[in-house]
Amino acid sequence: MTNPISRAWRKLFYQDGGSYFLLPKVDSSFLDPPNEGPFGDAGPPVWRWIGRMTYGGKVATPFFYTVIGVWLALLTLIEVYFFTIDAFFGAFFVTIMLLLALLKFIIVVAFFMHLRFDKSLLTLVFTAGFLIAILVFVIMLSVQGQLTPAPMVAP
């Protein structure tokens, strides 16, 4: 932990380094963290301020969840705004929209469904199902040509 690069590396990949991301597993046995803002203690000072604001003692405060809810609403607004200027993004429009949806998905699963704070086995179970679903998805799209029926003209 001597230079900024190694610090950033630890925050990216390790839980014990005040990581940037809250989604990776934590070996915690309690439902809500005792002092866990939306970004923990990582990130710029404003996030630490929010972390202190959402400190609730033994369990997270309603304000903590309200902040998460506001983020979700803002992300939805951004999605709809991007939809109105889709020509601006051109070929990247689909990718950007899918990334925004994935971000909302992760936020709900991690915080509202408490996977971030729960035992990692639950994350493993759900991720396995989700990845198999993605696999089915990819297989179906890859054999799309064979699945598409010959067009029939309505009588």
Partner: peptide, 12 residues
């Protein structure tokens, strides 16, 4: 997790 497959199939 199994319901992911259910909806994943429909979306696909």
């Amino acid at each position: 997790a199994s319901d992911c497959l259910f909806f994943g199939s429909f979306i696909a």
